[in-house]
Nucleic acid binder design. Sequence first.
RNA 1: GGCAGGGUGGAGCAGUCUGGUAGCUCGCCGGGCUCAUAACCCGGAGGUCGCGGGUUCAAAUCCCGCCCCUGCAACCA
Length: 517
Amino acid sequence: MANSFYITTPIYYINDVPHLGHGYTEVAADFIARFKRLQGFDVTFLTGTDEHGQKIAQAAEAKGVKPKEWADEIVPRWHEAWKALDISYDDFIRTTEARHEKPVQTFVQELYDRGEIYLGSYEGLYCVGCEAFKSPDELIDGKCPLHPTREIEHVKEENYFFRLSKYAERLIDLWESDERSVMPEVRRNEVLGKVRQGLDDLSMSRISFEWGIPIPWDSKHVIYVWIDALLNYITAAGYASDEARFNRIWPVDVHLIGKDILWFHSVIWPAMLMALDVPVPKTVYAHGFLLVGGAKMSKSSLTGISPQDLTETFGSDGYRYYFLREVSFGQDGTFSWESMVARYNSDLANDYGNLASRVLNMAGRYLGGAVPRTPADDELDEADRRLIDAYDQAFTGMEAALDGLSPTEALKAAWTFVRKANSYVEEVAPWALAKDESQHRRLEVVLYNLAESLRLIALLTFPATPRASQELWRRLGIDGELDRAAFATDGVWGGLPAGSKTTKGDALFPRLDDDQK
RNA sequence: GGCAGGGUGGAGCAGUCUGGUAGCUCGCCGGGCUCAUAACCCGGAGGUCGCGGGUUCAAAUCCCGCCCCUGCAACCA
C-alpha cells in the first residue's frame, strides 16, 4: 500500500524526565496515529530522545559517568512513561545510535560540499542552560532569564555557519503556499511575520565541548545539538541508509510539536532540507501549552508532575481522554485535578461507561447474553434509523476533524453518538418491551442496535481509550483486536455477529469521588 | 515600539470569513424513567456578545477609535 502516513513527535532532551507536557504531545500524536491506522494508512509513528549537547555532558560529569552511560540510564524512564500511556510508536530513535549519527554526518558533509556551510566566528554571551548565544538585551541582571541560576559565559569561538539567511524568500513562499502548512493558522502567521523580518545565518557547530557528533571534515567541532536533533526525522526514515523506505515515507505528513520549538521546525529545518533538495515536511503542527490550575496541584509546576502521577487514579485511558478532549487542540489549556475528575466522571463514567453497563446488563438479563439475529431493514423503525444516522454523522464528523488534525473535535463528534445511544435507550425502553412477550422480536432488535452501537463506539473511541475499547469488544464477544481493525470493514453498521456471547463485567470507568485523593 | 491572537449567560468554548432565531459541554433548578456506575432522558432559568462611535431596514458578525489579556521577538513539551 502506498498510502503512507508518517507522524513524529519531538525527540525529548534527556536532561529532563517525562512530564505532562511531553505526555500531551505523545498522546495527541498517538491518537492521530491510531486513527490513521484505522483508516487504513500505513502509519509510521516516530518518537525518541535527544541525547547530545553540553547540558547532558555536564549532567553526566556531575554523576561521574560518561555521557552515553548517563543517557543509557535515563532513556528507560522515557520508555516506561510511554508504555504507561499506551503510546503505540512504531520507532523510537536515540540520537546516539549509529543509524542516526552516520547519516547526520553524511547530511552535514553534503551541505559543506555544496557550499552551504562556511567557517566564521562568533563572539557573544552563551547560556549553557539554553545551549544558545544570547544578546545583551535579553539578559536580566547579567543572567539568562530562563536559567537565572547559571552563569552566562562569554565566549568567542570559531563556528561553522549554515547559510540560513539565503532561504528567507523561499521559506516565505513555502508557508504562503497551500501545498505545505504550519498549523494552526496563528502559528503560520507568526512564522511568516518573523521570517519577513529577515534571517541570520545559523551557527551550527560547537568547539567548546565534545559531546556531540563530530563535524566530518573538522573533528574538533561537534554538530550543534539542534541540527543533530532535527535530522532524526529523516535518519529514522532511512535517509542515507535505506533509500527505498525513505522514498516511501518521506516527506513526513505531520511534525507534531509544542509551540516553543516552532522556529526550528518551520524555518531552520525546512531550510536545511531545501539546501539539499530534500522535500520539506507537509505539515508542522504546533500545539499549545498546558497550564496548571486548581487547588490540588497548583503548587506543582507542570514539569513537576509525571504522567504516572495521574494514571494511578485515572488510568491510561482517563489520562489520554482528558487531555485530548479538555484542551482545545492547538490552543493553550489549563490542567486541574478538579476538571480532570469532572471530565472523567461526566464523559467516561456517566456517558460511556454507564451506557455499556446498562446495555450489557439488559442483554444479559433479557436475552441471556446472546446477540440476536441482525435486524433486517424492514424490522427497523424511525427511532432505529435515527440511531444509525447518528452513527454515520459521528463517524463523518470524526474523519473531518482528523483532516483538521483535531483530536478534540473528533472526540466531540464521537460523543454525539454516545449521547444519542443513551437517549435511544429511553426512547425504546427495552425494560417495557421485556414485560410483553409479544414484543420479543422488537426487544431483540433494539438490543441488537444497542450492542452494535457499543461495538462502534469502541471502534470510534479506540484512538483515545484503547484499553476500555478493547475490553468492551471482548465483553461483546468479539474476538478481533482493535489495533488491527479498519473503519472500511469494521466501521459498517451491522457488523456484530449474531450469537456473540456478551458479558457484563465491572464498571469500565468507575466513578471517582469529587475529592478523590 | 513592532507583529499576531483573543475579550460571548457561573466555568470552558463555538458562532464573526458568506450581517437577519446567540449554539455546545459542565454547573444550577424542575420533571420523567427505573435497564444502569445516585447514573440516564426531557424541560427550564441565566448573556446590553470588552467600551464608544459609524455603515445598514437589520451587527456578536462590516468600518473607525479606545481599554484589557495573551503569544512571538531565534533554542524547556
